[in-house]
């Protein structure tokens, strides 16, 4: 699980071009959106594509993303449970 979390942090930083962040800046339970990492609705769409492409998980409604993308912990748990690749 910790490996997946690290992987996710690296991917998020790279995919969303968060140049000012390193993996150590992101705590597992930090809020990804709003006050935490400061991600927005466009980032949510980017992450939906990442879920599909890298883990074979398809979210069809952007609203579902809100639940799944709460924090690295929540996201990692969700992926572990639903991944098809």
């Amino acid at each position: 699980m910790n490996e997946l979390k690290l992987e996710l942090k690296e991917k998020i930083i790279e995919q969303l071009n968060l140049e000012e962040f390193t993996v150590t800046d992101i705590d597992d339970d930090d809020a990804l959106f709003g006050d935490g990492l400061g991600l927005d609705s466009i980032d949510a769409l980017e992450l939906i594509v990442m879920l599909d492409k890298d883990y074979g998980i398809q979210l069809t409604d952007p609203k579902e993303g809100k639940e799944v993308f709460q924090s690295i912990t929540v996201l990692a748990n969700y992926i572990a449970e639903h991944r098809t690749k």
């Binding site: 995919q15 466009i42 769409l45 980017e46 594509v49 599909d52 492409k53």
Partner: peptide
């Protein structure tokens, strides 16, 4: 046409 991300389009 798969796995496209929105940022470059926007």
């Amino acid at each position: 046409e798969e796995f496209l991300t929105p940022t470059p389009f926007i």
